[in-house]
Design a protein around this nucleic acid. Structure first.
Lengths: 208, 208
DNA sequence: GTCTATATTCTGATAGAC
DNA sequence: GTCTATCAGAATATAGAC
């Protein structure tokens, strides 16, 4: 209890370094960040970074894994909820992943650009990072039978769902140039999409 | 003519360096690439890089601008074709941008991850890079009137169209894990999507 | 634990021979 | 134009005082 309070009020040096590293690595990637930037951002001495985390690589790996966990958490949370209809699953997914992306756009782009460099190394770790991973696979296979979906259907449905969810974040600057460009309006549009995406996906269902 | 042939058969040193730089910068970004990597990839000496391109920054800027032009070329080509219906425009766009992405996935991810670092510097150059840029704006505004679309409609339509097009490329590894994972099948699915996306967008039109 | 000073390696760029 | 050798500065990491 006291530790929690202390953490909120007065972060330890280790925490300060980690938060600075998280911010910079997530925004700019491994190669573009210098250890001096991290030390400066954390308001500590350069030597302390190595004292606490041994090396830039070790520190980066911690941040990368945590970012990946963050990113995958939403997926597994949703897939673990039981007894849902397929449509309900899609509705939940569109809502919660849009919300997550609103809060963590940087992590999303980090995953997109940085993970591929370490994909081989990471793929082995994925199962330990997400114990629910095989559960997700099963869930999808179950649904393929229940809904009588083919591989082809799954490919297009997943592409469509994810595509519709992430597009506004990828196009943000471009889209803000079209309308009034305010953050408030952008977020309103996202709220609209949370409700529209499930409806859209239903409407697309009949198309062949 | 003789120059063109010579270029194909026996690239000059300058060309070799530029191609090596294009490959590495596009795949890994500015900071992650070392000048020695480029020299090695090009099969030439490190000093020649500076001899031909003065500095790593200058070389990168050339590649960045060319990548950006490549990326935007498709957009302006389509927007410049005259006398098309709105539906026709969408159909053309889905087809040609999917084709482009198939050929240039690296450039797409490069734009996504690298451009934001230089956005301010680039924004000023954009108009000179794409003379058709203001033409595109007009095209959109025309269509808003003709089709009686609001800002809101445009926001969602653009998000939906782009989202449906790019999703398979972003999800490629994940999606290949679901089905047989062959490149051939992935490309077949892309061909399906070229035809389906316009139909899907029509089906979504009625949803409110 | 934290700091200053320094060692070590890496990296971009150049000088000068050919 | 091309190469080898080398410089100057940056960047990571450590030694050692406090």
């Amino acid at each position: 209890m006291s530790k929690k309070v202390k953490t909120l009020v007065d972060p330890t040096t280790e925490e300060k370094i980690k938060e600075a590293a998280r911010k910079l690595f997530t925004q700019k990637g491994f190669a573009a960040v210098k250890t001096r930037d991290i030390a400066s951002e954390a308001g500590i001495n350069l030597a302390l970074l190595n004292y606490y985390f041994r090396s830039k690589e070790k520190l980066f790996e911690i941040i990368m894994v945590e970012n990946l966990q963050q990113f995958l958490q939403g997926l597994s949370l949703i897939s673990n909820e039981e007894n849902k209809s397929f449509d309900d699953l899609i509705e939940k997914f569109a809502g919660s992943y849009t919300t997550w992306l609103t809060k963590n756009p940087d992590i999303f782009f980090f995953i997109l650009s940085e993970i591929k460099n370490d994909l081989a190394r990471l793929d082995m770790k994925l199962d330990s990072l997400i114990p629910e991973r095989s559960g997700m696979r099963k869930k999808i296979q179950e649904m393929m039978k229940t809904e009588k979906m083919t591989d082809q259907d799954i490919f297009h449905l997943m592409s469509n769902m994810i595509g519709l969810i992430i597009a506004p974040f990828i196009l943000k600057h471009l889209l803000q140039g079209i309308s009034d460009g305010s953050e408030k309006q952008f977020n309103e549009r996202l709220e609209e999409r949370k409700k529209l995406i499930p409806l859209w996906l239903k409407a697309m269902k009949g198309v062949k």
